[in-house]
Design a protein around this nucleic acid. Sequence first.
DNA 1: TTTATATATTGCAATATTACGATTAATAAC
DNA 2: GTTATTAATCGTAATATTGCAATATATAAA
Lengths: 111, 111
Amino acid sequence: MGITKTDSFTEQQNELATLLKAMAHPARIAIIEFLLKKDKCICGDIVDELPLAQATISQHLKELKNANLIKGTIEGTAICYCLNQEVFSALNDKIQLITNQLIIKNSTKCC
Amino acid sequence: MGITKTDSFTEQQNELATLLKAMAHPARIAIIEFLLKKDKCICGDIVDELPLAQATISQHLKELKNANLIKGTIEGTAICYCLNQEVFSALNDKIQLITNQLIIKNSTKCC
DNA sequence: TTTATATATTGCAATATTACGATTAATAAC
DNA sequence: GTTATTAATCGTAATATTGCAATATATAAA
């Protein structure tokens, strides 16, 4: 139904899925990579960098912000965005946990 | 438009986004965790485990298979699924790359 | 061959996402 | 005050996703 049966899954499963979904768009990957490349924080430069309308970029930034993947601070009329290291670290830990378990269990490989 | 401007982004950005999207659903996280938990490969047990209809599980498995996150081998009438360690490792590397860069650059933190 | 079992596919209905133009809000410069 | 500048929000169209019942397919067992 385009609607997800959130109740049927654990909070952790829903949280991880939400975090992954927030990253699961090439424009948002591009924004993340752009923020990573720049030493200093960026605001409307993203609009110049990517071939998307300002409204669209703003929407993508909102989703990244909702997922806590980025932080934004107001600087005059501009807004300074940067990546939230803690959330990326947490995601990294989760993916690593799965991957490590997989590598260990691979000795008893099946398929 | 619900359609993504794929041409506007690099192949790597699109690939990573596609991989993340394949994981970005609690049911698919649950399937991954279930396959991880079991020593031996699982087939229709997933249908018994999760509160979703058989058709829905089959669809989720298809998406995971398309993304190469799982492999399936036919065993009589059943199909034996297991996680694809290589793809998880590759994803882990990408996330780790971003996270490590972030940790290094955090000294010049901004926001 | 018939029957049972296991999984995939089809065809919806409900909802979500993506993208953008137009507008709004909020601050800075004058 | 007026005028730029910057970013968020609204409204809308096009498309994608989720979920399931019903059906199809394919093999095994009888």
